[in-house]
Design a protein around this nucleic acid. Structure first.
Lengths: 189, 189
DNA sequence: CCATCGAGTGATTGACCAGTCACTCACAAC
DNA sequence: GTTGTGAGTGACTGGTCAATCACTCGATGG
């Protein structure tokens, strides 16, 4: 009972669609509390078929995570291009702006947060390290900044994750304002 | 069948012991994949009795989290005292050192990471915000530093969480070294 | 000696979920 | 037209877990 109508899709196309659904669902509930059935439902697919496309739940999560970091790297790269041959600080700033735009819908950000928490599963930890390596080296090579500046770039990225996760700009004042000051927030809608 | 022998403990003492066990167990598995039975086993208690001491799983987690931030605040306070009346930067640096010592056993750090990932449960998000507020205001008031410096203090704390979670100082070189540079790591044993 | 009360448990329930398997169905090639 | 193949599913299994409840046991007080 193919619900989508239209032509029968090849399994590779389906796999891509399932990864998209996985990003959205895992971003909502995290690894442990998101059932495969939720991903399947979003992809208009039976839960059983997900296991034909991926060997298990971890593989699916890792695939989603890989895709997430790929998108992040792509955005950072674009950001760097926008500041062409300005100084390192300016380039990093532009990359930060591009990242803020990318994560406006929260999914890619939350997925990273959940992945960090699920890093006791070795495959997941590996995927996070892989992604973070890509991002770090990209920031360094494209900006030409000192190691210290690159480190700060990542640190403020992590702070940004915290702010969004806790909805700090909406909630309460003062101490929250200290943390959120000057960080580019995703649009609220 | 009270296994601990000795005198029968009052329920309040038991509650404390259960919170300690909860910190250790939740730090290992996170909120969703840590069963109450694991906490109960570590506290030498039947799972059923945990529900007599706490109304539900979330309450237990929140209690553990509250205690965690209490310990963090206490450590930071001690750190600030060590630098008595030095400059703000020096005081913040000393607080950072005290924090690094406190989280040497990883439990208090991992609990915070897992809490962030479980922040879609409102009670948990509230507890994290409460704790973070306490820490932020403590850092600001005790150091007398500018808002910007306090923000940086927290941001590097988050970076520290990432480094420990991914075991970055042990794993691989170069990009990992950039991120871990100058951060005081917990003793490896 | 009896009543009460708090500490603590065993057994159970109801729900959920990862993973499996045998199956159907559409289409293609011969 | 029948044989083969890949897409896709329904139904099931084995296991886990939060939460509940009726119960036991030991101490304490009258």
């Amino acid at each position: 009972m193919t619900k989508r109508g239209a032509t029968l899709s090849t399994s590779d196309a389906r796999r891509d669609a399932v990864v998209d659904a996985a990003i959205a669902e895992f971003a909502r509930g995290g690894y442990h509390s998101t059932p495969i059935s939720a991903v399947a439902a979003r992809a208009d697919i039976s839960p059983a078929y997900v296991f034909k496309l991926f060997p298990g739940k971890v593989s699916l999560f890792v695939a989603a995570l890989d895709r997430c970091y790929e998108l992040v790297a792509h955005a950072l790269s674009n950001g760097a291009a926008r500041a062409a041959d300005a100084g390192p600080e300016k380039i990093l700033h532009e990359m930060g702006g591009a990242y803020a735009e990318l994560i406006a819908d929260r999914d890619l950000l939350m997925l990273q947060v959940h992945a960090q928490s699920a890093a006791d599963t070795p495959e997941i930890a590996d995927a996070v390290r892989r992604g973070l390596a890509k991002v770090t080296e990209l920031a360094r090579s494209r900006s030409g900044a000192e190691d210290e500046q690159v480190q700060r770039f990542i640190a403020y990225g992590q702070l940004c994750h915290l702010i969004v996760t806790l909805d700090l700009d909406a909630h309460t004042g003062d101490w929250a304002a200290v943390l959120a000051a000057g960080i580019r927030h995703p649009d609220r809608n």
